[in-house]
Design a protein around this nucleic acid. Sequence first.
DNA 1: GGACAATCCATAGCAACGTTATGGCATACT
DNA 2: AGTATGCCATAACGTTGCTATGGATTGTCC
Lengths: 215, 215
Amino acid sequence: MSPRPPDPAVRAALIETAARIVATEGRAALTLRRLAGEVGTSTMAVYTHFGSMEELRREVRREGFARLRARLAAVRDSKDPMADLTLLGAAYYLSATASPNLYRAMFLDGPVDDGDLGTGLDTFMYLVKAIGRCLEAGRFPEAGGTDPAELALEVWGMTHGFVSLQLANLLPADQAAEHLSSGVRSLFVAWGDDPAKTGASAARARRRLAELSPG
Amino acid sequence: MSPRPPDPAVRAALIETAARIVATEGRAALTLRRLAGEVGTSTMAVYTHFGSMEELRREVRREGFARLRARLAAVRDSKDPMADLTLLGAAYYLSATASPNLYRAMFLDGPVDDGDLGTGLDTFMYLVKAIGRCLEAGRFPEAGGTDPAELALEVWGMTHGFVSLQLANLLPADQAAEHLSSGVRSLFVAWGDDPAKTGASAARARRRLAELSPG
DNA sequence: GGACAATCCATAGCAACGTTATGGCATACT
DNA sequence: AGTATGCCATAACGTTGCTATGGATTGTCC
């Protein structure tokens, strides 16, 4: 009754190879025939495993989110939640700029569907939790009863903005990084953080940069 | 000696039709044969006028920047430079979200080249000048001797960030608009603007929304 | 253990894509 | 008027994603 099962190794190889091609050469470089050729299978394998090229691209995005999540998870909670927060921002920025084409595929290439939204949202939670801990520590007196998710959205919007400008060649990397950090610092100031503490946390974050996964 | 000159009407029709297709149906809807068909010419006309499909897409981006510039130019200087600034931000946001596919083509679809950078930069100048007038009016005491372009970059980065998140379906329109305005307000607070004045300027800007071009 | 049935994947063909070659015909200068 | 120059219409080429067909392989049942 039961027929031949699909080979999980073929499926994994397709995703991994596709992610590599997209990450190194961009979306346009990923073609059906080339993918099948590099994996050493036939074009039909893509259709039995994913149904369409678009569905495979979605799996590539999932892979991208998984890698981003791993980077963020490498940032451990410390006694200075704002240093943790700064380090999360750095991990996000470095992930995006180290694999610009993958970031483009995840966030820029087109409207994401609901499936992506779910897998992307849990990476956002790392940011929300860090900000929540900053609030508990009393670092943002001016943002008293605010939902941490609201504040996290401000930080994410600004981060995504500068990353996008850099990836679009509208800003050189050094300017993007500098204005991003000064912009986020402005948010902290507006939320009432003590400037001396802000500086101390930033210094502590800088000392912990080695925690971040390589790349 | 001199041969038949290229018809400027054909060229204009190609650009206008291409911009309409991209704006209404997105980048993927613009194909060579369809464009030639709708304009009522042959596929070769595209190559005599633009040389390649990619060069025509660049003209579409130029057209998009021209439209954005017209929107920004419709905001006249008033005695309240921060109201002007807020209105410029609204004009930018409304332009982008009213023609999301055109904004995508201009800023999101791929790395822009140097030609785009030049045409895009002069729209940025509207923002720089408004912030310069805010500085002259003493609205940002904490940002004393800072270059207006630096501050404008912060505002632009945040604006572009939330616009991009909305266009990517990562944020619903109402949340994007709300967090964008509250984020920009945070920047003003961090730069030392008097909260009462900030509110008054925002109210004045709201009353002037009709100045903006329709759409 | 052998027949069966289901289905994965290899081969071949389709429409549509951007681009290039070819050629007729209109146009501006001698 | 004649001519040469180059715009634009027609046709073909290679590559794209996708579908139709068919052979090979594997799990199940008697």
